[in-house]
Design a protein around this nucleic acid. Structure first.
Length: 386
RNA sequence: GGUGGGGUGGCCGAGUGGCUAAUGGCAGCAGACUGUAAAUCUGCCGCGCUUCGCGCUACGUAGGUUCGAAUCCUACCCCCACCA
């Protein structure tokens, strides 16, 4: 369980195979985000048909609603949602960043004022582990502290150091949960079917990133390692540099998860710098907002120019949306605010990224990744129009 | 025929003498979104130009009052309600 094997390597890019309790994930792979235990708007079967191998859930949001006790009572997140492939839960660490105005950080943990009812909810490294254990995803993430991409060295260092201290507490608590006898174990799985992944922080500062990684590795071993705190306001070039700096030090025997990334180009740039797993809300959020990725760039489905277009969203795409509907119809669905439109573009965007992972994997295995990636990005950025 | 109410930019609808090219909303156009407080948010939206500005045309029509009118007066046209 929790094994990772490489099927191919080209430069820094890797093609791998991650085995988890609920199945195997072929990497590189894009993981759709299902914060509330649902990939917004989509039926689990639709998500599965995009080829998505694994999805996320969120500790903070599921703790607030419905509460982990509910999910535990009905048999865990997999059973609750009926998603039977691998799942990963984010720790709530990102909410420390995204809900900045609603929380207070201390060494012990983070106090959130619930955006739902104003009640105070405290998340600590320990409680995040307990909640995630109750949720029962294949992979739990360490409770970390994300800082703004432009954060100065001192701020980034503070967040990075705290993340390391919290990591030790996460590791300890998660270990306890794992070895507790079944009767006292707060979740249902037995034998232990969840692993914990640490998160490298350090903002945009190379020295901090390397320190974070080194100390994280020292605290191991781990079955996977995540890089967080990127694509949070820093220029893309900075993110790529950070990844390049980490690549030589990252162990090759475990999957590397670039959290919160990304857009299609970021996915390829990340893969080219040794990343294996990606997640991003943009596929579904942009989908709901009518923005679609295509092989020749971004398309705004509401654009007046698509009014009479009988073309598919992306002629090169094999998704359920592109293989069936015209741009004119999709535009019509958006103009009339029909919910099918949101769903169809979400399906397309997810398939688009999932397929990008598949294509990258195939290219890496055959040793043609670098060339393929250059061509692909060339076409994507020099869109004919769209 | 009489009485009362009303005619504002693509639509709805504020505005009753200068701060009004005219509040809002809708429609339309364009953009943003990266471990989801987002089916959300932002900008543009009379015409033209050298567009952090200038010019022109505008609040049913035609006149008038006034330094100045969508706002006041007169006539006319049209719409609505009620009464004959």
């Amino acid at each position: 369980m929790f094994e990772f094997a490489l099927d191919g390597v080209e430069g820094l890019a890797r093609a791998g195979r991650l085995t988890l309790p609920h199945g195997t994930v072929q990497t590189p792979a894009f993981l759709p985000v299902g914060t509330h235990g649902t990939v917004r708007g989509l039926h689990p079967a639709e998500v599965a048909r995009t080829g998505a191998q694994m999805i996320l859930g969120n500790t903070y949001h599921l703790h607030l609603r419905p509460g982990e006790e509910v999910i535990r009572a009905v048999g865990g997140l997999h059973r609750f949602t009926t998603w039977d492939r691998p799942m990963l839960t984010d720790s709530g660490g990102f909410q420390v960043f995204s809900l900045e105005g609603l929380r207070k950080i201390s060494e012990d943990g983070v106090e959130f004022v619930s955006h739902i009812d104003g009640s105070v909810r405290t998340l600590t490294p320990e409680s995040s582990m307990e909640i995630q254990w109750a949720l029962g995803a294949d992979v739990a993430m360490a409770f970390d502290q994300v800082v703004q991409g432009q954060a100065p060295h001192v701020t980034a260092e503070e967040g990075m150091e705290r993340t390391l201290r919290w990591l030790e507490r996460c590791r300890r608590r998660h270990e306890q949960l794992t070895i507790e006898p079944p009767s006292r174990r707060p979740a249902l799985q037995e034998p232990p079917t969840q692993t914990l992944w640490p998160i490298v922080q350090g903002g945009s500062h190379q020295d901090l990133r390397l320190r974070s990684l080194q100390q994280t590795l020292d605290a191991g071993p781990w079955t996977g390692i995540a890089v967080g705190g990127l694509s949070v306001g820093e220029p893309k070039a900075v993110m790529y540099e950070v990844l390049e700096g980490l690549a030589p030090v990252l162990p090759s025997a475990v999957p590397r998860y670039l959290m919160g990334v990304g857009f299609p180009d970021d996915l390829l740039e990340g893969i080219g710098r040794g990343m294996d797993l990606f997640d991003c809300v943009a596929a579904t959020r942009n989908g709901r907002h009518g923005s679609a990725w295509t092989s020749v760039g971004k398309v705004n489905i509401r654009a007046a120019g698509l009014r009479l277009s009988d073309e598919p969203l992306d002629a090169a795409c094999d998704c359920e949306t592109c293989s069936r509907f015209s741009r004119a119809y999709l535009r019509h669905l958006f103009m009339t605010e029909e919910m099918l439109g949101l769903r169809l573009v979400s399906i397309h965007n997810i398939r688009f990224l999932v397929r990008l992972g598949e294509l990258a994997r195939a290219a890496i295995v055959t040793g043609t990744f670098d060339r393929w990636r250059r061509d692909w990005l060339e076409r994507y950025h020099h869109r004919g129009d769209a």
